[in-house]
Nucleic acid binder design. Structure first.
Length: 484
RNA sequence: GGCGAAGUGGCCGAGUGGUUAGGCAGAGGUCUGCAAAACCUUCUACAGCGGUUCGAAUCCGCUCUUCGCCUCCA
């Protein structure tokens, strides 16, 4: 089976073949950096992280571009609003650059903890003003745009396919029922700004042939996507809420100048909801990742996200997170058992699991099914290990390799080192391993002497500090509990 | 009003015509000094009403409900 991707533009799954054999170009809309990242960002970037990982695993050379939007788009109506980053700068009594730098770092901190790999190129919008101006000039030259009073607008009537992504193709019909369009300088109500003249007191502004101002918010993605990936790219990803107008505008302005398809596969990930309502900063119901990480292992959050499909809404609740914590721990437990097990004699066939996993991922990145395969493997492995024959060293290695490839390299959920001590704490980890050895030896001695009061005290006190002891047929093992 | 998505068991969440999704929680059992972990068994489903079909959670129609977009948004 080959890879099939749901293409939002066609509203159907299509067989994926890159434009240039062996090479995949992918652009994903990045965050606007005026606040800490929330769970919605996590869902988006974890989802596309897995997409990229799977493409690479499938043998493609992937060039992944994810922008940083450090020009704040307008908060209210296009005329009345204030730049979000400028607003935040005013609130924090600093300047916009400091705001965007601060929250960019914050964003990467959170993504690193979620085990999201960095994009190959992370271009900032403010670093590409000349490219954006050049794009506007091309649009003016080709008659797709017009200038009025220092503002430049894209003329939607000049691009017949406008709205094809979102299905909003009938511009006349769209005008009835929507808010009254106040601005009269536009030729058509659906026309959108490419360049805006800066109002009095506007902090972020640049010189341009038309006015001292700032770029329209759809422009950056087109300019940077085409600069780094070419005029036609394989995949463009983003949140569903950006289909219209953002992505439709990108298509219009890009295809107007190139005459070529802008994007071959559009991928849109769905929203995170809280009690069924979309999570959003403006709705004041967003779950800040830094807060969430205080209570929950970031990899549990990643696992929680991957347990649903990227095109499905994901409803957040504490009980759902708790269920994921326990579930992920189960997978860790299996890996631990597999590693520590003494070789047996029976064979164990990993192939069917590998095939099911591959099929799931090839079917539009169906991570919930892929995760289910890991659980099925876990169950089968545990059952096999419970039998007296155990499993052979070869099978043990194969199972472990599969778990590593699928769970660690592709899904990125089994990246916690076995005893939960990461590389930074390796030395301390070794010492704790030694201490645990002593404690477990003492406990075993107590148990042999039927001094259960002492042995249980050791067990309970360790549990109190987040270390769990497990008595198995093959001896005693221990692990740290998730989130501790 | 327009465009789009969806309603699955206590909760989360896959599945598009016939075959166990999976996880968490619950019940019983095996194991254990007792637990935990693990394993085995097991209970709660496909919003409603029609229709197509030998057969529908899955296709069609209607109804109800929810959500997203149409303003910045992952």
């Amino acid at each position: 089976m080959s890879l099939f991707i749901y293409n939002s533009l066609k509203r159907a799954k299509e067989k994926f073949e890159p434009l240039h054999p062996g090479m995949v170009s992918i652009y994903v809309c990045g965050p606007t950096v005026y606040g800490h990242a929330h769970l919605g960002h996590a869902k988006s970037y974890v989802s596309f992280d897995v997409v990229v990982r799977w493409l690479r695993h499938s043998g493609y050379h992937v060039k992944y571009v994810q922008n940083i939007t450090d020009v704040g788009h307008l908060t209210d109506d296009a005329d009345e609003g204030e730049d979000k980053i400028s607003k935040q700068a005013r609130l924090e009594k600093t300047d916009p650059m400091e705001i965007s730098q601060f929250y960019t770092r914050s964003f990467y901190e959170d993504m690193d903890r979620l085990n999201v790999l960095r994009a190959n190129i992370a271009p900032a919008a403010t670093a590409h003003i000349p490219e954006q101006i050049a794009l506007v000039e091309r649009l003016l030259a080709t008659g797709h745009a017009y200038e009025v009073n220092g503002n430049v607008y894209f003329s939607v009537e000049s691009f017949p396919g406008y709205g094809k992504l979102s299905g909003r193709t009938d511009q006349e019909a769209l005008q009835s029922g929507i808010r009254v369009e106040m601005r009269s300088e536009k030729h058509h109500p659906s026309d959108f700004a490419l360049w805006k003249k800066a109002e009095e007191g506007h902090l972020m502004k640049w010189n341009s042939p038309w006015s001292i101002g700032y770029p329209g918010w759809h422009l950056e993605c087109s300019a940077m996507s085409m600069k780094y990936l070419g005029e036609t790219i394989d995949i463009h990803g983003g949140g569903m809420e950006n289909k219209f107008p953002h992505h439709d505008c990108e298509i219009a302005q890009s295809e107007s100048v190139t005459g070529k398809p802008y994007v071959r596969f559009w991928m849109h990930n769905n929203m995170v909801t809280v009690n069924g309502i979309k999570m959003g900063k403006s709705l004041k119901n967003s779950i800040n990742l830094k807060d969430l990480f205080k209570e929950t292992d970031p990899l549990v959050i990643r696992f929680f996200i991957l347990q649903s499909h990227y095109r499905s809404q994901l409803d957040y609740s504490e009980s759902a997170i708790k269920a994921s914590t326990t579930g992920l721990e189960k997978l860790h437990e299996t890996r631990r058992r597999l590693r520590n097990q003494k070789p047996g004699t029976a064979g164990f066939d990993v192939e069917p699991f590998l095939k099911r996993f591959t099929d799931a991922m090839d079917d539009d990145f169906n991570t919930p099914v892929a995760v289910a395969v890991l659980f099925d493997l876990s169950k089968a492995v545990n059952a096999a290990l419970d039998r007296s024959e155990g499993i052979s060293e070869e099978s043990r290695q194969q199972s472990e390799a599969f778990l590593h490839t699928a769970g660690t390299e592709i899904l990125g959920i089994l990246n916690k080192s076995e005893q939960a001590f990461d590389n930074n704490n390796l030395q301390i980890g070794k010492k704790i391993d030694g201490i645990m050895e002593i404690l477990l030896e003492m406990r075993t001695q107590a148990r042999n002497n039927k001094d259960f009061a002492l042995s249980d005290k050791i067990r309970d006190r360790l549990l109190g500090v987040g270390i769990e002891i497990k008595d198995t047929k093959d001896g005693v093992s221990w692990s740290t509990k998730s989130g501790t």
